[in-house]
Design a protein around this nucleic acid. Structure first.
Lengths: 265, 265
DNA sequence: CGGTGAATTGAGGTACGTCAAATTGAGTGG
DNA sequence: CCACTCAATTTGACGTACCTCAATTCACCG
């Protein structure tokens, strides 16, 4: 039915040339960059390291993470080809970047010189600003995900996100570059729960798992249904009414809470 | 002991002139701005509204939030005097902004004209970029908070954050502009759980609550101890070792997990 | 074909959510 | 100044989704 991608398919920027928003950087900035290759399991930089550069993923996959005192890890973001990262408001990095896929390479941009360039080249400044704003939007969406959804919704949303970001040709066949542990730490849940959620989705016919790294989305509608944080997009007036409703009578009329939102598509 | 602030103390930018990072914007940008006043309970804008401006909080307090389909709400951020917000990568807002304190006013910056200014004025461009980067750092920290901490840690971290951001003179006496419901939706937990956590902290002598909106931090050390997501700040080498340790033998040596982190200050 | 780590499955515990009731406290009107 | 109201907050009792611990199973590799 769908084209199954070979296991060792490399993720490269060429693979996702389709998306315009996160496309290439201006040539004036590119010329400042240098290539870096880091092996799987190594870290590009660790929390506390001096932050004197930004980076862009050229190929492969990495993740930005922190470790809490009690040994738990939170993955803040998966870094896939095209992603720009490493900005810091302080002179050191707050988080670590670990490589999770074979053949991961980065372009490194010296922060000082790039910043100077941005102060001269308005296009560069604009692109950087846009990228930052996109990051904020993505982070905010993930915040809703972490806070207000259950296991099944998290995993569904995760699969859809990855399908979006790594799509090689067919957007429904995806090769996950990360382990279950990584997924768990990304979604802030236990590995076992991730596994169980995948099993459930499999049982419901929403996905097919061949290789544990190869997932085929067989019923995108079902996933979207589960994942939809279904953010309300209502006019101000109606939103306000809904807010008041909720604020003033939080648990008294649960049925109305369910019907109100649908009334303002 | 500590100066108790009157209940109706207004939060203004003057109150937090101390922090340099989020200080005033360049004058060239300021002149583009217009004043806006919005009443408590109203929304500045709602999700889906056209995004043609940015905003800065001049006084008062607001929050950025979304509502999920099942009626739950997630507050993405509290907006306090000095905060810049409303950037969008798309032409419409993804989230709503609701006013939560009396006398809340904003400065409104037309996006088009401000953007044009930034393309000419390097300082403006730089400041905006910096602000965006700071936002990212804050969001990432909160992500760890939402994902990897329990109720007590969340509330402790919240109190410390608010003490930081609203500090009027004494940094340990804080007046919360938001309700328990707001706090709950910010930390992604139930109101009841927030209340219980506060009660626990009160019982442990970490805080004193006079007015349910007025909190005095009596044992900052204790709060910090609870809140510390205690991000590991180790050198790359040690971080890597720790990662492997964890990855390859996740639950087998729990005692070593506890001791390892402390060995690399 | 055994060895090894990743992934899955199973069983049981718990922190937090939910529902319900009590308490506080700010307004409001007598 | 004191009852009364109504919402916000707190407290209590109980259920459950997810975490933890433990045991297989699976996939890959020499």
């Amino acid at each position: 039915m769908a084209i199954l991608v070979r296991k060792q398919t490399y993720l490269t920027e060429a693979g996702q040339s389709a998306d315009a928003g996160s496309g290439r950087l201006p040539q004036t900035l590119e010329v400042l960059s240098t290539r870096i290759h880091v092996a799987v399991g190594e870290t590009l930089y660790a929390a506390g390291d001096v932050a004197d550069s930004w980076y862009r993923v050229s190929s492969g996959a990495a993740c930005e993470s922190v470790q809490t005192a009690d040994g738990r890890r939170q993955i803040l973001d998966f870094l896939l080809p095209g992603d720009l990262f490493g900005f810091c408001s302080r002179p050191w990095h707050e988080f670590s970047v670990n490589i999770i896929a074979e053949g991961t390479t980065f372009a490194r941009y010296p922060a000082r010189r790039s910043d100077e360039l941005a102060s001269v080249d308005a296009e560069v400044a604009w692109v950087l600003r846009q990228r930052a704003i996109e990051s904020i939007a993505r982070l905010q969406s993930r915040m809703v995900l972490l806070g207000r959804t259950n296991a099944l919704e998290k995993v569904s949303a995760f699969l859809l996100e990855m399908a979006d970001r790594t799509s090689i040709g067919c957007a429904d066949a995806l090769v996950l570059p990360m382990s279950r542990y990584d997924i768990a730490d990304y979604l802030a849940m236990a590995v076992e729960t991730v596994s169980r959620a995948l099993t459930t989705l499999k049982a419901q016919g929403a996905i097919t798992v061949s290789n544990s790294r190869q997932v085929l989305i067989t019923d995108r509608r079902a996933l979207e249904h589960r994942a939809r944080e279904s953010l309300q997009r209502c006019s101000s007036a109606i939103r306000m009414a809904a807010d008041r409703q909720r604020r003033h009578a939080p648990p008294s009329t649960p049925s109305r809470q369910g019907t109100l939102p649908t009334s303002c598509s």
